[in-house]
């Protein structure tokens, strides 16, 4: 194997980098599901955030980098986020709440965390955390609202394609 690599001109450094990249790729779902990033202080809160996020986004393969960025922003904007997200996750789990009834049930039965589902949805889908003058952008082209329509539209400022491609009937239309 070593001789093959030297024949194809792969350096030791390149080989290591390739190995690391391949390794980290296979680790991504595992890392997101159970490993708390080093930047996060409260691993229970992070796990709760991931669990709630998976419900709200209907997506179990959320990108780890965006998850970390969003979680840290939510904590930065709300001192009580880490405690309250655990409360919301426990409430959802204990009551086996379907996402379709989540907001109504939270408002009726756990109003102290009713602001969290829209905040988490706004983060994942719109890439925004906070409100008013404090609003912060944590994602743009990766925001899930643009992923949802990616076969038809591009996020504003990104090219749809060559001149006139917009004349065509969109595939789903």
């Amino acid at each position: 194997m070593n001789s093959n690599h030297s024949k194809s001109g792969v350096t030791r450094r390149g080989f290591l980098a390739a190995s690391l990249a391949a390794g980290s790729l296979t680790l991504i779902p595992h890392a997101l599901a159970s490993t708390t990033p080093q930047s996060v202080a409260d691993s229970d809160a992070y796990r709760a955030f991931i669990a709630v996020s998976q419900q709200i986004t209907a997506n179990t393969a959320l990108k780890p980098a965006m998850a970390e960025r969003l979680y840290l922003a939510l904590v930065r904007h709300d001192d009580s986020f880490a405690e309250r997200i655990k409360q919301l996750d426990s409430f959802i789990t204990a009551e086996a709440i379907a996402v379709s009834e989540l907001q109504a049930r939270v408002e009726a039965e756990a109003p102290e965390v009713k602001d969290l589902p829209p905040a988490i949805a706004t983060g994942w889908f719109e890439g925004l955390v906070g409100s008013g003058k404090d609003v912060e952008l944590i994602a743009f082209s990766e925001a899930l609202m643009y992923v949802a329509v990616a076969d038809v539209l591009k996020p504003p400022s990104y090219s749809l394609g060559e001149y006139g491609i917009w004349q065509n009937k969109p595939a789903k239309a």
């Binding site: 419900q55 709200i56 986004t57 209907a58 996402v99 379709s100 989540l102 907001q103 109504a104 589902p117 829209p118 949805a121 889908f125 899930l144 949802a148």
Partner: peptide, 8 residues
């Protein structure tokens, strides 16, 4: 209050 698959 629309989330999940319904939101997408």
């Amino acid at each position: 209050g629309v989330y999940g698959k319904d939101l997408i």
